[in-house]
Design a binder for these strands. Sequence first.
RNA 1: GGGAGCAUAGCUCAGCUGGUUCAGAGCAGCUGCCUUACAAGCAGCGGGUCCGCGGUUCGAAUCCGUGUGCUCCCACCA
Length: 882
Amino acid sequence: MELSKNFMPAAAESRWTTIWKDRKYFNSVPDERPAFAVVIPPPNVTGVLHMGHTLNETVQDILVRKARMSGFNACWVPGSDHASIATEAKVVQMLEKEKGIKKADLTRPEFLRYAFEWKEKYGGIIYSQIERLGCSVDWNRVTFTMDDHYYKAVIDVFVDLHDKGLIYRGARMINWDPAAKTALSDEEVEYKEVQGKLYYIRYKLEKGGDIIIATQRPETIMGDTAICVNPNDDRYRALIGSHAYVPLIDRKIPVIADEYVDPAFGTGALKVTPAHDINDYNLGLKHGLDVIDTLNDDGTLSEAAIIHVGTDRFKARKLIVAELEEKGLLAKEETYQTRVGYSQRTGVVVEPKISTQWFLRMKDMAGPALEAVLSGNVRIHPGDKFLATYRYWMENVKDWCISRQLWWGQQIPAWYNKDGGYVVAADRETAVIRFREKGVELQAEDIRQDEDVLDTWFSSWLWPMEVFNGITDPGNKDIDYYYPTSVLVTGQDIIFFWVARMIMAGMEYKKEKPFSDVYFTGMVRDKQGRKMSKSLGNSPDLLELIDKYGADAVRFGIMISSPAGNDLLFDEASLEQGRFFNNKMWNALKLIGMWKEKQSTEKPVDDWAHEWFEARLLQARLEVEQLLSQFRLSEALKTIYSLIWDDFCSWYLEWIKPGFEEAMASESLQKAVGFYEELLQLLHPFMPFITEEIFSLLRQRGNDEVLCIRQFPALASQREKLQQLTVQQRLEEGQLLQAVISGLRDARNKAQLKPKEQVALFITPANRELYNNICLILQKQVNASAISFTTEAVAKSLTVVIGKDQFYLQAGRETAPVQQKEDLLKELEYLKGFLVSVEKKLGNERFVQNAKPEVVETEKRKQEDARAKIRLIEESLTELTT
RNA sequence: GGGAGCAUAGCUCAGCUGGUUCAGAGCAGCUGCCUUACAAGCAGCGGGUCCGCGGUUCGAAUCCGUGUGCUCCCACCA
């Protein structure tokens, strides 16, 4: 077997990707096994995977692979989201740039044709990245949120909710995105603290004089329809009921009173602009004020503004401020810290705007969705962090604006006649019937469909159901088998957009939660803690990382530094660590390969080492199980990493390694190979490629037997085994052996004994029996010519105390005991202090009375141990000084 | 303004139900080694006022209160 010097990820990755795919290991159909279903949070179809996705997909793959190897019928459904606003914006941009076509010049079908072309061209990138990362998804189940069946499901749900009275149409104040020219939901607005300005503007009063009003938005004054003061504010009481003039356009407006106004803020007088501010809108409703909308859909001033018509809102602000100043109407300006809402998708400042849109009543749907989480039916990880947030949102949920003024998405199934009357129906024919039911006689060509589409999230909230056709074909085999899914892995930033709404939809349409566990990953930041973003240029390209380090190393790096639920500071150094780990495992394969070439049939002498490693593996395996069940993936990986690197490579392989040019006992070799296979299996969910590769090379299995479907041993039997006395004893012996080897090597180092210089070793053990099995290995590992047991101090030797035992190293030459004496004195000092504290504890009556008996027992043991060790060290010191 | 979380080694973090020599791991650092799997490595080492203060307890990194600092979410003061 000729092996390359290092592990070459690229070749192994493409080889195993093909094998897995060709043999359909990851395709799932319902059978008699329990299901373990995971639906991927569908990434934006035209996007690329960023580090956040990489983390999420890796976590999901670990859970899915683990389940598949543990008796479950694992099914991971891949797919993508049409991402209405984002995709439409990209297509519009592409059309203008590459083809010089404006959206306005296209018909709806023409535009959609371009959009689908675009989706076909770029939509595949996401999938190829998911594949390169090694994700074990079922490619037969790829779902897109605009697939025919999915489209139908969304329409059906809309019609159903409308028929139930949960969806309504009306004019409300909504968030308007002037760049995308569409309404947004509250969740799509991101508020940021910005340094703004507060302008103090003079409004002339009808009765003479003026009143000064503070505003952040002078460009909206033309929409003012009142000035409002607090009725209890003595400064303004006399003005209530009088009139003032809007500056620059001199429109007459009343001064009204409302307790809402805070006399302490600004000047205590508020300009009321019902069309452009939610509070003003509410005030307007209360006081019956006019609504003057001075902005167009694209954020320029409208005819109603009278001045600066057609000018952009921010340019108009500057012009108006300048004009006010010139006319002496600007009393003062001050800087002011404020919050401004930005569109999550386009990044522009959102305008509050009154608009006729479709809304979903959320209150009734929130009840069951809240209950599902509070009762523990859906478990959130890490729970303590998100439970309160979830609860608050559900209890204070507002109606959801679900219509968007776009073309890319599911078109709203509402139909209007010429009089503006409308019905909701899945298609034109049904719509005509519904009109007739209402007594409106008309023909199919007399009605037109609503131009708008539905919010993307109004389709994604059906994801766990409709990927299995649960809405369009309820009761089918798949939905009955896979639903509810097992775990949802996603970023905490979409808890309201998506997670909460999926639970709502699941409770509404399946009367059952969509998933049992939700695992929130943190945000991926760079190593300085900054958010990853395109503008900062700190977001690495996934494929480049895979090319550089290999997919396994990328997965390792991102998982090892990813504490559950916390943000992850991405640092390429951890990927490097992953690559080093690859090579470590590769080298272990090479070592075993060398052993194969020179074997003997003799009975091996190292039975103990095999028994020890078996015990250690058992222990670690159960630890990993425990950690995985708690979603502590990072720690599970650390445990396996250390098991392979330290326990297997550094200890076990060294312990069974034959002497120079000696043959390896076949029986030992087989044991080592067997252990290595188990380690690879344990690691496989985390690092699938290299584990398959080494597994296939270890016994030259070829490709017939693979790790990805190899089943883990049953847990119960493992737990029992670990409790066995001999297993526990091996573990204890192993710990002792490791401590003694390290301690003696340290002593040798400090005495400047070269590794090649042999020593004679004398031991005064506390428990002689523990040494029965480990002497041979100990002798080899510390390069001792012989080991003897003694009860007396050995003259002219290095003295070392390790644990409860005393060691004497006799070298072939004189060594300086200076450092050694210092070490012993230090140790002695510490022990004496320790003994004092233990004895104080034991001398405390209340401790002895109140503490649990076993705690008192251990304290007594500690006391005895400490005394014994102090005696040993003191003996050694006398020995040294004589 | 309301709520949640966090503060442990130079960095990133474990430390679960208070008690094992409990103060840990990885990375970084230092020392010595090109030793026949691996220098992408081996052997070994050093490093901490567990944020401050107070309380509960026989006993606190751990529980409670409080202060400080940081992070996030929510909220209609122009």
